[in-house]
Design a binder for these strands. Structure first.
Lengths: 236, 236
DNA sequence: TCAAAAGTGTTTCTCGTACACCCATGT
DNA sequence: ACATGGGTGTACGAGAAACACTTTTGA
Protein backbone atom coordinates (compact mmCIF):
# COMPACT_ATOMS: atom_id res chain seq x y z
CA UNK A 1 0.00 0.00 0.00
CA UNK A 2 1.34 3.38 -0.98
CA UNK A 3 1.45 5.97 1.72
CA UNK A 4 0.35 9.55 1.51
CA UNK A 5 3.10 12.00 0.85
CA UNK A 6 2.94 15.74 0.80
CA UNK A 7 1.59 15.98 -2.71
CA UNK A 8 -0.10 12.66 -3.23
CA UNK A 9 -3.23 13.67 -4.97
CA UNK A 10 -4.42 16.80 -6.65
CA UNK A 11 -7.84 16.23 -5.13
CA UNK A 12 -6.18 17.49 -1.98
CA UNK A 13 -6.65 20.91 -3.44
CA UNK A 14 -10.28 20.78 -2.40
CA UNK A 15 -9.59 19.81 1.20
CA UNK A 16 -10.31 22.46 3.78
CA UNK A 17 -7.34 24.68 4.45
CA UNK A 18 -6.28 26.65 7.49
CA UNK A 19 -5.65 30.35 7.62
CA UNK A 20 -1.93 31.02 8.13
CA UNK A 21 -0.69 33.99 10.11
CA UNK A 22 2.61 35.37 11.30
CA UNK A 23 2.93 36.66 14.87
CA UNK A 24 5.84 38.72 16.09
CA UNK A 25 7.59 38.85 19.44
CA UNK A 26 9.47 42.13 19.15
CA UNK A 27 12.11 42.62 21.82
CA UNK A 28 14.07 45.63 22.93
CA UNK A 29 16.02 46.55 26.04
CA UNK A 30 14.96 49.81 27.69
CA UNK A 31 16.24 51.00 31.06
CA UNK A 32 18.10 47.71 31.60
CA UNK A 33 14.83 45.85 31.19
CA UNK A 34 13.80 43.40 28.48
CA UNK A 35 10.55 44.52 26.86
CA UNK A 36 8.26 43.34 24.10
CA UNK A 37 5.89 45.24 21.88
CA UNK A 38 2.19 44.59 22.48
CA UNK A 39 -0.86 45.68 20.55
CA UNK A 40 -4.27 46.29 22.01
CA UNK A 41 -6.93 44.49 20.03
CA UNK A 42 -9.73 46.52 18.51
CA UNK A 43 -11.95 43.64 17.44
CA UNK A 44 -13.45 40.46 18.77
CA UNK A 45 -12.39 37.99 19.84
CA UNK A 46 -10.36 39.21 22.80
CA UNK A 47 -11.39 42.79 22.03
CA UNK A 48 -9.49 45.19 24.26
CA UNK A 49 -6.98 42.53 25.27
CA UNK A 50 -3.27 42.80 24.62
CA UNK A 51 -1.80 40.62 21.94
CA UNK A 52 1.25 40.16 19.78
CA UNK A 53 1.39 42.09 16.55
CA UNK A 54 0.87 39.97 13.48
CA UNK A 55 -1.18 39.35 10.39
CA UNK A 56 -2.08 36.88 7.74
CA UNK A 57 0.26 35.59 5.09
CA UNK A 58 -0.80 36.86 1.69
CA UNK A 59 -1.61 33.92 -0.49
CA UNK A 60 -2.36 34.43 -4.17
CA UNK A 61 -5.62 33.20 -5.52
CA UNK A 62 -4.27 29.92 -6.76
CA UNK A 63 -1.84 28.55 -9.27
CA UNK A 64 -0.88 31.62 -11.23
CA UNK A 65 -0.16 33.88 -8.31
CA UNK A 66 1.00 32.17 -5.12
CA UNK A 67 1.66 35.33 -3.09
CA UNK A 68 4.45 36.24 -0.69
CA UNK A 69 6.87 33.97 1.17
CA UNK A 70 6.41 33.56 4.90
CA UNK A 71 9.68 35.45 5.42
CA UNK A 72 8.29 38.27 3.35
CA UNK A 73 5.09 38.23 5.40
CA UNK A 74 7.07 38.49 8.63
CA UNK A 75 9.19 41.37 7.34
CA UNK A 76 6.16 43.15 6.01
CA UNK A 77 4.28 42.86 9.29
CA UNK A 78 7.32 43.99 11.22
CA UNK A 79 7.56 47.04 9.04
CA UNK A 80 3.84 47.78 9.27
CA UNK A 81 3.65 47.38 13.01
CA UNK A 82 6.80 49.26 13.93
CA UNK A 83 7.24 51.74 11.10
CA UNK A 84 10.91 50.76 10.99
CA UNK A 85 12.48 50.19 7.56
CA UNK A 86 13.57 46.72 6.44
CA UNK A 87 16.85 45.64 7.92
CA UNK A 88 16.57 47.97 10.89
CA UNK A 89 15.72 45.02 13.12
CA UNK A 90 16.92 41.46 13.37
CA UNK A 91 14.22 38.90 12.52
CA UNK A 92 14.25 35.15 12.94
CA UNK A 93 11.67 32.40 12.75
CA UNK A 94 10.76 30.96 16.13
CA UNK A 95 8.18 28.18 15.97
CA UNK A 96 4.89 27.39 14.29
CA UNK A 97 1.92 27.13 16.60
CA UNK A 98 -0.98 25.18 15.24
CA UNK A 99 -3.27 23.84 17.93
CA UNK A 100 -6.91 23.61 16.92
CA UNK A 101 -9.17 26.17 18.61
CA UNK A 102 -6.31 28.52 19.42
CA UNK A 103 -8.54 30.93 17.54
CA UNK A 104 -12.21 30.29 18.30
CA UNK A 105 -13.48 31.55 14.96
CA UNK A 106 -11.56 29.32 12.61
CA UNK A 107 -8.49 27.20 12.19
CA UNK A 108 -5.44 29.47 12.27
CA UNK A 109 -1.88 28.24 12.12
CA UNK A 110 0.56 30.87 13.22
CA UNK A 111 4.23 31.07 12.26
CA UNK A 112 5.83 32.94 15.15
CA UNK A 113 8.95 35.09 14.73
CA UNK A 114 11.00 37.14 17.07
CA UNK A 115 12.63 40.45 16.30
CA UNK A 116 15.32 42.47 18.07
CA UNK A 117 15.07 46.25 17.98
CA UNK A 118 17.91 48.50 19.09
CA UNK A 119 16.99 50.74 22.05
CA UNK A 120 17.82 53.89 20.09
CA UNK A 121 15.14 52.91 17.55
CA UNK A 122 12.57 51.68 20.08
CA UNK A 123 11.17 55.15 20.89
CA UNK A 124 10.46 55.71 17.20
CA UNK A 125 8.19 52.69 17.24
CA UNK A 126 5.70 53.95 19.79
CA UNK A 127 5.78 57.31 18.03
CA UNK A 128 4.70 55.55 14.84
CA UNK A 129 1.32 55.55 13.17
CA UNK A 130 -0.08 52.94 15.51
CA UNK A 131 1.00 54.65 18.72
CA UNK A 132 -2.33 54.59 20.49
CA UNK A 133 -2.57 50.81 20.47
CA UNK A 134 1.08 49.76 20.73
CA UNK A 135 3.23 49.71 23.83
CA UNK A 136 6.53 48.35 25.07
CA UNK A 137 5.83 46.05 27.99
CA UNK A 138 8.25 44.77 30.61
CA UNK A 139 8.28 41.02 30.88
CA UNK A 140 7.89 41.29 34.63
CA UNK A 141 4.50 42.92 34.18
CA UNK A 142 3.24 41.00 31.19
CA UNK A 143 -0.56 40.82 31.23
CA UNK A 144 -2.60 37.82 30.08
CA UNK A 145 -2.53 37.94 26.31
CA UNK A 146 -5.03 36.95 23.65
CA UNK A 147 -5.04 33.46 22.12
CA UNK A 148 -1.92 31.41 22.97
CA UNK A 149 0.30 34.47 22.82
CA UNK A 150 1.66 34.06 26.36
CA UNK A 151 2.92 30.68 25.29
CA UNK A 152 4.54 32.18 22.21
CA UNK A 153 6.28 34.83 24.31
CA UNK A 154 7.55 32.17 26.67
CA UNK A 155 9.01 30.22 23.76
CA UNK A 156 10.66 33.36 22.40
CA UNK A 157 12.31 34.16 25.73
CA UNK A 158 13.71 30.65 25.97
CA UNK A 159 15.06 30.91 22.44
CA UNK A 160 16.79 34.22 22.93
CA UNK A 161 18.23 33.14 26.27
CA UNK A 162 19.73 30.07 24.70
CA UNK A 163 21.07 31.94 21.72
CA UNK A 164 22.63 35.07 23.14
CA UNK A 165 25.63 33.21 24.58
CA UNK A 166 26.84 31.67 21.37
CA UNK A 167 25.41 33.83 18.58
CA UNK A 168 26.07 37.52 18.05
CA UNK A 169 22.50 38.63 18.68
CA UNK A 170 23.22 40.88 21.66
CA UNK A 171 24.55 43.50 19.25
CA UNK A 172 21.06 43.84 17.84
CA UNK A 173 19.94 45.18 21.23
CA UNK A 174 22.49 47.95 21.73
CA UNK A 175 23.00 51.22 19.83
CA UNK A 176 25.46 51.25 16.91
CA UNK A 177 28.22 52.21 19.33
CA UNK A 178 28.13 50.86 22.85
CA UNK A 179 30.16 50.54 26.02
CA UNK A 180 31.14 47.41 27.89
CA UNK A 181 28.53 48.14 30.52
CA UNK A 182 25.79 48.64 27.95
CA UNK A 183 26.42 45.27 26.37
CA UNK A 184 26.59 43.68 29.79
CA UNK A 185 23.23 45.17 30.68
CA UNK A 186 21.72 43.47 27.63
CA UNK A 187 22.98 40.12 28.85
CA UNK A 188 21.69 40.86 32.33
CA UNK A 189 18.28 41.89 31.01
CA UNK A 190 17.92 38.74 28.93
CA UNK A 191 19.19 36.31 31.53
CA UNK A 192 17.65 38.24 34.42
CA UNK A 193 20.81 37.76 36.47
CA UNK A 194 23.74 39.95 37.46
CA UNK A 195 27.11 39.46 35.77
CA UNK A 196 30.47 40.05 37.37
CA UNK A 197 31.82 43.24 35.83
CA UNK A 198 35.41 42.10 35.68
CA UNK A 199 34.61 38.75 34.16
CA UNK A 200 32.31 40.24 31.57
CA UNK A 201 35.01 42.71 30.68
CA UNK A 202 37.39 39.85 29.93
CA UNK A 203 34.75 38.18 27.79
CA UNK A 204 34.34 41.48 25.99
CA UNK A 205 38.10 41.64 25.53
CA UNK A 206 38.10 38.27 23.83
CA UNK A 207 35.47 39.44 21.37
CA UNK A 208 37.69 42.42 20.72
CA UNK A 209 40.70 40.16 20.12
CA UNK A 210 38.66 37.97 17.78
CA UNK A 211 37.77 41.00 15.72
CA UNK A 212 34.08 40.53 16.47
CA UNK A 213 33.94 44.04 17.85
CA UNK A 214 36.25 47.02 17.46
CA UNK A 215 36.85 50.26 19.25
CA UNK A 216 34.93 53.25 17.91
CA UNK A 217 35.99 56.89 18.12
CA UNK A 218 34.73 59.03 20.98
CA UNK A 219 33.67 58.32 24.52
CA UNK A 220 30.32 57.79 26.20
CA UNK A 221 29.39 60.34 28.83
CA UNK A 222 28.26 58.69 32.09
CA UNK A 223 27.47 59.76 35.62
CA UNK A 224 31.17 59.53 36.39
CA UNK A 225 34.16 58.45 34.34
CA UNK A 226 33.48 58.48 30.56
CA UNK A 227 33.65 55.05 28.96
CA UNK A 228 35.18 53.88 25.72
CA UNK A 229 32.72 52.97 22.98
CA UNK A 230 32.88 50.04 20.57
CA UNK A 231 31.03 48.87 17.51
CA UNK A 232 30.04 45.49 16.15
CA UNK A 233 32.14 44.25 13.26
CA UNK A 234 29.84 42.34 10.88
CA UNK A 235 32.79 40.96 8.92
CA UNK A 236 34.44 38.05 10.69
CA UNK B 1 -4.80 54.58 11.50
CA UNK B 2 -5.31 51.15 13.01
CA UNK B 3 -3.03 48.41 11.81
CA UNK B 4 -3.88 44.89 10.81
CA UNK B 5 -3.42 42.32 13.48
CA UNK B 6 -3.71 38.60 13.23
CA UNK B 7 -7.47 38.49 13.56
CA UNK B 8 -8.53 41.92 12.49
CA UNK B 9 -11.50 41.14 10.42
CA UNK B 10 -13.73 38.15 10.00
CA UNK B 11 -13.90 38.87 6.30
CA UNK B 12 -10.43 37.40 6.30
CA UNK B 13 -12.16 34.05 6.40
CA UNK B 14 -12.85 34.37 2.72
CA UNK B 15 -9.29 35.17 1.74
CA UNK B 16 -7.46 32.45 -0.18
CA UNK B 17 -5.67 30.05 2.08
CA UNK B 18 -2.60 27.91 1.58
CA UNK B 19 -2.42 24.17 1.95
CA UNK B 20 -0.33 23.28 5.01
CA UNK B 21 1.82 20.16 5.11
CA UNK B 22 4.30 18.56 7.46
CA UNK B 23 7.54 17.13 6.08
CA UNK B 24 9.84 14.87 8.04
CA UNK B 25 13.60 14.53 8.08
CA UNK B 26 13.99 11.17 9.77
CA UNK B 27 17.54 10.44 10.90
CA UNK B 28 19.24 7.31 12.04
CA UNK B 29 22.84 6.16 12.36
CA UNK B 30 23.65 2.91 10.57
CA UNK B 31 27.16 1.55 10.18
CA UNK B 32 28.67 4.70 11.67
CA UNK B 33 26.92 6.75 9.01
CA UNK B 34 24.20 9.34 9.36
CA UNK B 35 21.23 8.44 7.17
CA UNK B 36 17.79 9.84 6.42
CA UNK B 37 14.64 8.17 5.24
CA UNK B 38 13.55 8.98 1.69
CA UNK B 39 10.37 8.14 -0.18
CA UNK B 40 10.11 7.68 -3.90
CA UNK B 41 7.24 9.69 -5.31
CA UNK B 42 4.51 7.89 -7.17
CA UNK B 43 2.69 10.92 -8.58
CA UNK B 44 3.39 14.13 -10.41
CA UNK B 45 4.95 16.49 -9.87
CA UNK B 46 8.43 15.04 -9.46
CA UNK B 47 7.11 11.56 -10.12
CA UNK B 48 9.80 8.98 -9.53
CA UNK B 49 12.00 11.47 -7.67
CA UNK B 50 13.07 11.01 -4.09
CA UNK B 51 11.47 13.19 -1.48
CA UNK B 52 10.96 13.57 2.24
CA UNK B 53 8.03 11.73 3.77
CA UNK B 54 5.20 14.00 4.77
CA UNK B 55 1.56 14.83 4.36
CA UNK B 56 -1.08 17.45 4.85
CA UNK B 57 -2.30 18.71 8.18
CA UNK B 58 -5.86 17.63 8.74
CA UNK B 59 -8.00 20.69 9.11
CA UNK B 60 -11.62 20.35 10.10
CA UNK B 61 -14.25 21.81 7.86
CA UNK B 62 -14.60 25.05 9.77
CA UNK B 63 -15.65 26.36 13.11
CA UNK B 64 -17.12 23.28 14.74
CA UNK B 65 -14.32 20.88 13.96
CA UNK B 66 -10.86 22.43 13.60
CA UNK B 67 -8.94 19.19 13.13
CA UNK B 68 -5.60 18.02 14.52
CA UNK B 69 -2.72 20.08 15.89
CA UNK B 70 0.42 20.39 13.81
CA UNK B 71 2.27 18.30 16.43
CA UNK B 72 -0.38 15.63 16.02
CA UNK B 73 0.00 15.78 12.25
CA UNK B 74 3.76 15.28 12.53
CA UNK B 75 3.40 12.34 14.92
CA UNK B 76 0.75 10.77 12.74
CA UNK B 77 2.82 11.05 9.59
CA UNK B 78 5.87 9.69 11.39
CA UNK B 79 3.86 6.72 12.51
CA UNK B 80 2.35 6.17 9.07
CA UNK B 81 5.62 6.44 7.20
CA UNK B 82 7.76 4.37 9.53
CA UNK B 83 5.30 1.99 11.14
CA UNK B 84 6.89 2.78 14.48
CA UNK B 85 4.58 3.40 17.44
CA UNK B 86 4.27 6.83 19.04
CA UNK B 87 7.13 7.67 21.33
CA UNK B 88 9.52 5.26 19.66
CA UNK B 89 11.28 8.17 17.99
CA UNK B 90 12.24 11.64 19.06
CA UNK B 91 10.41 14.36 17.13
CA UNK B 92 11.03 18.09 17.08
CA UNK B 93 9.85 20.98 14.96
CA UNK B 94 12.54 22.33 12.66
CA UNK B 95 11.40 25.26 10.53
CA UNK B 96 8.45 26.30 8.41
CA UNK B 97 9.18 26.64 4.72
CA UNK B 98 6.77 28.80 2.81
CA UNK B 99 8.20 30.17 -0.38
CA UNK B 100 5.68 30.65 -3.15
CA UNK B 101 6.01 28.17 -6.03
CA UNK B 102 7.89 25.63 -3.92
CA UNK B 103 5.05 23.40 -5.13
CA UNK B 104 4.12 24.21 -8.72
CA UNK B 105 0.50 23.16 -8.40
CA UNK B 106 -0.61 25.34 -5.52
CA UNK B 107 0.52 27.32 -2.54
CA UNK B 108 1.85 24.87 0.06
CA UNK B 109 3.41 25.92 3.34
CA UNK B 110 5.35 23.09 4.92
CA UNK B 111 6.12 22.74 8.60
CA UNK B 112 9.32 20.67 8.65
CA UNK B 113 10.22 18.39 11.54
CA UNK B 114 13.13 16.15 12.25
CA UNK B 115 12.98 12.77 13.93
CA UNK B 116 15.65 10.56 15.47
CA UNK B 117 15.24 6.80 15.17
CA UNK B 118 17.39 4.35 17.13
CA UNK B 119 19.48 2.07 14.89
CA UNK B 120 17.93 -1.05 16.41
CA UNK B 121 14.52 0.17 15.22
CA UNK B 122 15.68 1.44 11.82
CA UNK B 123 15.57 -1.97 10.07
CA UNK B 124 11.92 -2.36 11.07
CA UNK B 125 11.13 0.77 9.16
CA UNK B 126 12.15 -0.42 5.72
CA UNK B 127 10.35 -3.70 6.44
CA UNK B 128 7.13 -1.72 6.95
CA UNK B 129 4.13 -1.50 4.69
CA UNK B 130 5.77 1.09 2.48
CA UNK B 131 9.01 -0.82 1.97
CA UNK B 132 9.12 -0.65 -1.80
CA UNK B 133 9.24 3.11 -1.84
CA UNK B 134 11.18 3.94 1.34
CA UNK B 135 14.91 3.75 1.83
CA UNK B 136 17.59 4.89 4.27
CA UNK B 137 19.99 7.11 2.39
CA UNK B 138 23.49 8.17 3.42
CA UNK B 139 23.95 11.90 3.46
CA UNK B 140 27.09 11.54 1.39
CA UNK B 141 25.09 10.11 -1.48
CA UNK B 142 21.96 12.20 -1.18
CA UNK B 143 20.28 12.58 -4.58
CA UNK B 144 18.52 15.74 -5.78
CA UNK B 145 15.17 15.76 -4.02
CA UNK B 146 11.74 16.96 -5.00
CA UNK B 147 10.56 20.51 -4.20
CA UNK B 148 12.85 22.33 -1.75
CA UNK B 149 13.56 19.17 0.20
CA UNK B 150 17.33 19.38 -0.19
CA UNK B 151 17.16 22.72 1.51
CA UNK B 152 15.07 21.26 4.32
CA UNK B 153 17.56 18.43 4.82
CA UNK B 154 20.40 20.95 4.96
CA UNK B 155 18.58 22.90 7.66
CA UNK B 156 17.94 19.73 9.64
CA UNK B 157 21.61 18.75 9.57
CA UNK B 158 22.66 22.15 10.82
CA UNK B 159 20.12 21.95 13.61
CA UNK B 160 21.13 18.53 14.83
CA UNK B 161 24.82 19.41 14.63
CA UNK B 162 24.27 22.46 16.74
CA UNK B 163 22.11 20.64 19.23
CA UNK B 164 23.90 17.39 19.91
CA UNK B 165 26.63 19.04 21.98
CA UNK B 166 24.40 20.65 24.55
CA UNK B 167 21.16 18.67 24.48
CA UNK B 168 20.74 14.96 25.21
CA UNK B 169 19.66 14.00 21.72
CA UNK B 170 22.51 11.60 20.94
CA UNK B 171 20.80 9.01 23.15
CA UNK B 172 17.95 8.90 20.65
CA UNK B 173 20.39 7.50 18.09
CA UNK B 174 21.81 4.58 20.06
CA UNK B 175 20.16 1.38 21.27
CA UNK B 176 18.65 1.35 24.79
CA UNK B 177 22.00 0.15 26.12
CA UNK B 178 25.17 1.37 24.50
CA UNK B 179 28.94 1.46 24.91
CA UNK B 180 31.22 4.46 25.04
CA UNK B 181 32.35 3.76 21.48
CA UNK B 182 28.80 3.51 20.19
CA UNK B 183 27.88 6.90 21.56
CA UNK B 184 31.10 8.35 20.21
CA UNK B 185 30.30 7.01 16.76
CA UNK B 186 26.99 8.89 16.83
CA UNK B 187 28.86 12.11 17.51
CA UNK B 188 31.33 11.31 14.77
CA UNK B 189 28.57 10.51 12.28
CA UNK B 190 26.74 13.75 12.98
CA UNK B 191 29.76 16.01 13.03
CA UNK B 192 31.53 14.05 10.31
CA UNK B 193 34.81 14.29 12.22
CA UNK B 194 36.87 11.92 14.34
CA UNK B 195 36.89 12.29 18.12
CA UNK B 196 39.80 11.45 20.38
CA UNK B 197 38.83 8.24 22.16
CA UNK B 198 40.38 9.18 25.47
CA UNK B 199 38.87 12.63 25.56
CA UNK B 200 35.43 11.39 24.61
CA UNK B 201 35.69 8.84 27.37
CA UNK B 202 36.28 11.61 29.90
CA UNK B 203 33.30 13.49 28.55
CA UNK B 204 31.30 10.30 28.89
CA UNK B 205 32.55 9.97 32.45
CA UNK B 206 31.22 13.40 33.31
CA UNK B 207 27.78 12.43 32.02
CA UNK B 208 28.04 9.37 34.24
CA UNK B 209 28.97 11.51 37.26
CA UNK B 210 26.10 13.89 36.54
CA UNK B 211 23.69 10.99 36.58
CA UNK B 212 22.73 11.64 32.96
CA UNK B 213 23.70 8.08 32.13
CA UNK B 214 24.22 5.02 34.29
CA UNK B 215 25.90 1.68 33.95
CA UNK B 216 23.68 -1.17 32.75
CA UNK B 217 24.12 -4.85 33.50
CA UNK B 218 25.99 -7.04 31.02
CA UNK B 219 28.75 -6.42 28.54
CA UNK B 220 28.80 -5.78 24.80
CA UNK B 221 30.62 -8.39 22.75
CA UNK B 222 33.14 -6.81 20.35
CA UNK B 223 35.91 -7.94 18.04
CA UNK B 224 38.26 -7.81 21.00
CA UNK B 225 37.75 -6.93 24.64
CA UNK B 226 34.08 -6.85 25.68
CA UNK B 227 32.88 -3.33 26.58
CA UNK B 228 30.74 -2.08 29.44
CA UNK B 229 27.24 -0.96 28.48
CA UNK B 230 25.32 2.03 29.79
CA UNK B 231 21.84 3.42 29.54
CA UNK B 232 20.38 6.89 29.35
CA UNK B 233 18.81 8.16 32.55
CA UNK B 234 15.77 10.26 31.65
CA UNK B 235 15.44 11.61 35.16
CA UNK B 236 17.91 14.40 35.83
C1' DT C 1 36.88 64.82 49.09
C1' DC C 2 33.70 61.44 48.11
C1' DA C 3 30.71 58.50 45.44
C1' DA C 4 30.21 56.13 41.20
C1' DA C 5 31.59 53.76 37.63
C1' DA C 6 35.65 52.53 34.63
C1' DG C 7 39.18 49.42 34.43
C1' DT C 8 42.95 45.71 36.28
C1' DG C 9 44.85 41.57 38.80
C1' DT C 10 44.79 37.08 40.99
C1' DT C 11 43.36 32.58 41.99
C1' DT C 12 40.76 28.38 41.34
C1' DC C 13 38.17 24.98 38.73
C1' DT C 14 36.29 22.94 34.73
C1' DC C 15 36.66 21.54 30.24
C1' DG C 16 38.53 20.77 25.45
C1' DT C 17 42.60 19.10 22.96
C1' DA C 18 46.72 16.52 21.96
C1' DC C 19 49.16 12.56 22.67
C1' DA C 20 51.40 8.63 25.02
C1' DC C 21 50.64 4.44 27.16
C1' DC C 22 48.80 -0.01 29.39
C1' DC C 23 45.42 -3.94 29.44
C1' DA C 24 42.17 -7.56 28.07
C1' DT C 25 40.51 -10.51 24.56
C1' DG C 26 39.73 -13.19 20.18
C1' DT C 27 42.13 -15.15 16.28
C1' DA D 1 52.17 -13.51 19.41
C1' DC D 2 49.80 -9.97 17.84
C1' DA D 3 46.30 -6.97 16.28
C1' DT D 4 42.14 -4.70 17.90
C1' DG D 5 39.85 -1.98 20.59
C1' DG D 6 38.90 -1.02 25.77
C1' DG D 7 40.56 1.83 29.26
C1' DT D 8 44.07 5.23 31.78
C1' DG D 9 47.53 9.15 32.59
C1' DT D 10 49.66 13.59 31.75
C1' DA D 11 50.15 18.20 30.31
C1' DC D 12 48.65 22.59 28.30
C1' DG D 13 45.52 26.29 27.41
C1' DA D 14 40.94 28.64 27.15
C1' DG D 15 37.52 30.22 29.68
C1' DA D 16 33.97 30.65 33.67
C1' DA D 17 33.58 32.26 38.42
C1' DA D 18 34.65 34.68 42.72
C1' DC D 19 36.59 38.65 44.62
C1' DA D 20 39.88 42.30 45.82
C1' DC D 21 41.94 46.24 44.10
C1' DT D 22 43.24 50.82 41.52
C1' DT D 23 42.00 54.84 38.56
C1' DT D 24 39.36 58.49 36.65
C1' DT D 25 35.81 61.46 36.56
C1' DG D 26 31.52 64.57 38.09
C1' DA D 27 29.37 66.69 41.78
Amino acid sequence: MMKTDSTKDTSIERFPRPAVAVDLVIFTVLDTDLKILLIQRGQAPHEGDWALPGGFVRVGDGVIEQGESVEEAAHRELEEETGLPRGAAYLEQLYTFGDPYRDPRMRVISIAWYALVRPDLAPLVTAGSDAAAASWCSLSELPPLAFDHNHIVQTAIERIRGKIDYAPVAFELVPPTFTVAELRQVFEAIHATAYDRGNFRRRFKRMLDNGLIEQAPGKRQTASKPARVYRFNRRH
